[in-house]
Design a protein around this nucleic acid. Structure first.
Length: 306
DNA sequence: TTCAGCTCCTGAACGC
DNA sequence: TGCGTTCAGGAGCTGA
């Protein structure tokens, strides 16, 4: 389940392979992988073939590969926008490599240093997708995300908040936003328009680390608690990044198909009934906002929960 | 305007 | 062995 650390691992892996690479051919094998694209597979293939890629950029869980402008006659800047959804993978393969399981789209590129490569988008559950989107100026004129100094963001990503690892993330604005939220903090953390990149796994882990019950109302959190929470979100992200992300099965791998190791460092997620690493009490799992929520009822008191 | 719940989807795991 | 059910969850949509 790719969240910010997993997507960042993928972005960092793609960056050297796609920067200044020319797209030689595109094959859309399943149009369901283009749910965010305004055209069809043929349109996707036609627009990309022959174009030059500029790099790989990420905001939250969204990833995009900016395309070089076509010239003065076509100055509009576009990008290949991707979201991995639940089970999406972006894999780098040698040219002509056999099809991957659940392969949906293949982009063959020619890189000036690395030669011919295949960028494969595979996705089991088809929640992920690729699209071609216009790049528009960021509302705060700051760089759009990690991987590029350009203040240009895909239109479909413009409403997504910055992620907590972004230097332009505004901690105080985040606190003010929470203070107006009459909703459970777990739900607010999963709202990508408040802070991006946080999914179910890291929300549970950060709330446990900050000793905050997932069903506490966001507006009831003290300034100190919010600061502690955002610090723990960053700490969890940084640790997961250092360990290559969280892999429970083959559904998250880096661009080379390798799993991450952070699943071994999880304190509450997926540990129902096991002792809390902090107090020894049993971790519980509850169904919450159509998700599973894992927490320690002893460490994370239900004070103020409605 | 805000909030909560539903929907999409596939395959592994499980029970019978 | 085969069939049916449950579960996992990101993001957009809809209704209250």
């Amino acid at each position: 389940m790719p969240e910010l650390p997993e997507v960042e691992v993928v972005r960092a892996g793609l960056e050297p392979a796609v920067r200044n690479a020319r797209i030689a051919a595109v094959s859309v094998l399943d149009d369901r992988a283009l749910t965010r694209h305004s055209g069809d597979g043929a349109d996707f293939e036609a627009e990309l073939t022959g174009r030059l890629l500029r790099g790989a950029v990420r905001r939250g869980k969204f990833l995009w590969l900016p395309l070089a402008p076509l010239g003065e006659d076509f100055p509009s800047t576009r990008a290949i926008l991707g979201h991995l959804g639940m089970s999406g993978q972006l894999l780098l393969r040698t040219a002509g490599a056999p099809p991957e399981r659940h392969e949906r789209i293949r982009i063959d590129v020619e890189h000036p240093e690395h030669g011919e490569l295949a960028l494969v988008f595979a996705d089991q559950r088809t929640f992920g997708s690729l699209a071609i989107d216009d790049l528009i100026p960021t509302s705060d004129a700051a760089p759009a995300g990690r991987g590029s100094p350009e203040p240009l963001v895909p239109g479909q990503v413009a409403h997504i908040a910055r992620d907590p690892l972004d230097p332009a993330f505004d901690d105080e604005a985040f606190r003010r936003r929470l203070a107006r939220k009459d909703s459970a903090i777990k739900r607010v953390l999963l709202d990508q328009t408040v802070a991006s990149g946080i999914g179910n796994i890291y929300a549970d882990e950060a709330l446990w680390a900050a000793r905050i019950h997932p069903e506490r109302l966001a507006r009831d959190l003290s300034t100190r608690a919010v600061r502690r929470l955002i610090a723990e979100v960053r700490a969890v992200f940084e640790k997961a990044l250092a360990e290559g992300g969280t892999s429970f099965d083959a559904q998250y791998v880096n661009v080379n198909g390798q799993a991450g190791y952070f699943a071994h460092s999880l304190n509450v997620y997926g540990r129902t009934g096991q002792p809390c690493p902090r107090c020894g009490g049993p971790i519980v799992r509850v169904s919450f906002t159509n998700r599973s929520s894992h927490f320690c009822p002893r460490c994370q008191r239900a004070r103020g929960v409605q």
